[in-house]
Structures are given as C-alpha cells and as structure tokens.
Amino acid sequence: MPIYEIVFYFFSLVMLGAALMVITVRNPVYAALSLVLAFFSASAIWLLLEVEFLAIILILVYVGAVMVLFLFVVMMLDINLEPLKEGFMRYLPAGVVVALLMATEFMLVLWTKGRFDTQAFPVPAPNPDGYSNTKAVGELLYTNYLLAFEVAGVVLLVAIIAAVALTLRQRSGSRRQNPAMQVRVRREERVRLVQMDSEPRQGS
C-alpha cells in the first residue's frame, strides 16, 4: 500500500514544517496561520487512521473556533512579539545541545529492533461499512469514561471561574445597562404628554 505511506509521510512532513514555522516566523499572524496548517495536517493523518469524528472535531474546534479567536486577538491587540524573542539566539546553542542529547538518549533507551515497526503495531483492520465513528466515541465516552468526561467538564468550569475571578473588575464610574430595567420600562417614564395651547402663527 505505497499510496497510504506516501500520504502519511507527506502530511507528517507538512505538519512538522508548519510546527517549526509556528515558533520561528516573526509575524504572529503567520505563526497562527502555520498552526492552522499543522492542525489540518494532523486532521488528515487522523483521517488515514479512519477516525473521522476526531479529525472533523479537530478542524471544527481548533481551526474553526480557537484559532479564529486567536487571530482576532493577534490582529486587534497588535502585540509586539520582539521582546519575547529576546535572547532566543543566545539560548539557542544550549537548547539545541540539550535537545539533541535528550533525543539521543531516548533513542538509545528505546531503540531495539522491531519495537516500533509494523510487526509490533500492525495496521488495524479497516472498519466495516456503515461503521459509525461518532457512535463508537460517544458510547465509550458516556459509559467507560463517564467519570473522566464529567471531571473534564468541571476542569473547564474552573477555568471559567478562574478567568473571571482574575480579570473582572467593577469600575465605579462605568455606565452599564440593566436589561431588566430596560424591559420593564413603562411609557409614562419615558414620554410626557404636555397639554398646551396652540401658539398663534408667527411672522405673519
């Protein structure tokens, strides 16, 4: 199945390249767009594994929501990322050495012949026709992993609370609208009808 492998390596290379771009390009908008590209390639690899649901979710949630929001922030706030990159070149040699060392050590420990090849991890049998990926994920999520699913919800709730608790400030002079008051307003409070005599025509 050479076409399968060609597709896999193509998307893997694109993903690695895009991920590298994310951290190296100067312009933050390009960085965000590279991240989108990386997500797309990851999603393509997932499609190769026949996990359509997760592949689509990755596009919908990360590309559709998270990255768009991120792009908005980058464009609206005009963040200058130069100070963040300060010292990048200075730390680069040390970082590269440490990374290479770690990588070689990982290889030395883990690399034994046949550990990671297709004999040890055979290609799973293709799903039968009409197999629903979404249903399979849903079934697992709401039975075996119910607790984890609920706790993940709580983690998100905590994130919301923390974000609000750390950023919400009530300024004294702010003019906020009170929707309830606005809905309940009556005609008498806004319009005053005044009886008055008609004025004589002027300038005649």
Partner: peptide, 9 residues
C-alpha cells in the same frame, strides 16, 4: 489538573 488549575488562580 483540577487541583493545579484552581491553585494557579
């Protein structure tokens, strides 16, 4: 993560 997130805040 639940502990950590709450602690950061």
């Amino acid at each position: 993560e639940l502990i950590s997130l709450s602690s950061y805040a």
